[in-house]
Nucleic acid binder design. Structure first.
Length: 250
DNA sequence: GCAAAGATTTGCT
DNA sequence: GCAAATCTTTGCC
């Protein structure tokens, strides 16, 4: 009876990894995001992703403004440092595939697998600037926030909250997934295929190349040096949507 | 089979 | 500015 109709959250599927969609389809680079941009060096690919669009079909779109690069098995901060496991196996596959995992037991994180198969690298999407489907993002965010929470005061958990500025709806890796309804069922999805419910689109022609700033990655203090200090968090300098609370993006 | 830590976010002091 | 919430995955006995 775990199949409740309303909330489709597969809480009971703990003992079994979620079924994955078909891995790499034919080469749809012509219509989707060019896989070749993700097959090369991860840091170059990360630069290509800034300014690109993340599309959640049918109508949610955001401009990618912050990413982090995890360059391979030797990277002491990467999940790939432990070798292939049930969780990270898609990192060891071909580029352009989504790697989605759960962190701290509650937040999902979306990565784009890079470099050829057998080289386990990926790029974490840390923040997007909402462009379309803002109301749907807002609703999804509210839903994820109140999920499973009691109502201790009785006046509604959301009642006292102030409205979140649109620019901050997806200003963090967990928020990106919450706003776009991304969970582990998206693990293994082809992000280069324009038919995927979640996919990438190139930066529009009229869009100028963003000014990029590099800083150390966030939350990787457990990693040995030099990995913990490598400036592999890339962000768009003038974007109001980069992660961080009251701090500015530096 | 059990224990520890985590690529985060939020709310309160 | 600090600590809690929450549960999966990994590492070790």
């Amino acid at each position: 009876m775990t199949k409740a109709a309303g909330d489709a959250t597969p809480t009971g599927a703990a003992s079994r990894p979620p079924s994955r969609p078909t891995l790499v389809a034919a080469d749809d680079a012509e219509r989707g995001f060019p896989r070749s941009l993700l097959a090369g060096a991860t840091l170059d690919a990360a630069g290509s992703l800034l300014g690109a669009r993340l599309v959640r079909a049918p109508d949610r779109v955001g401009r990618i403004v912050e990413v982090e690069a995890y360059i391979g098995a030797a990277d002491g901060a990467s999940h790939a440092r432990m070798g292939p496991t049930p969780r990270n196996q898609v990192m060891f596959g071909p580029p352009g595939i989504a790697y989605v995992y759960l962190v701290y037991g509650m937040h999902h994180c979306l990565n784009v697998v890079t470099e050829p198969a057998s080289h386990p690298a990926a790029i974490l999407i840390r923040a997007i600037e909402p462009e379309q489907g803002v109301e749907m993002m807002r609703a999804a965010l509210a839903r994820s926030r109140t999920r499973g929470r009691a109502d201790p005061r009785g006046d509604g958990p959301v009642a006292r909250r102030r409205a979140i500025p649109t620019s901050r709806l997806a200003a963090g890796p967990g928020l990106v997934c919450a706003a776009l309804d991304i969970d582990r069922t998206f693990d293994g999805l082809d992000l280069c295929d324009a038919r995927s419910p979640l996919h990438l689109e190139l930066r529009p022609d009229g869009d100028p190349a963003p000014e990029i700033l590099a800083t150390p990655r966030v939350g990787v203090g457990y990693a040995p040096e030099p990995w913990a200090s490598m400036p592999w968090r890339l962000l768009v300098v003038d974007s109001p949507s980069v992660s961080g609370r009251s701090r500015r993006g530096v």
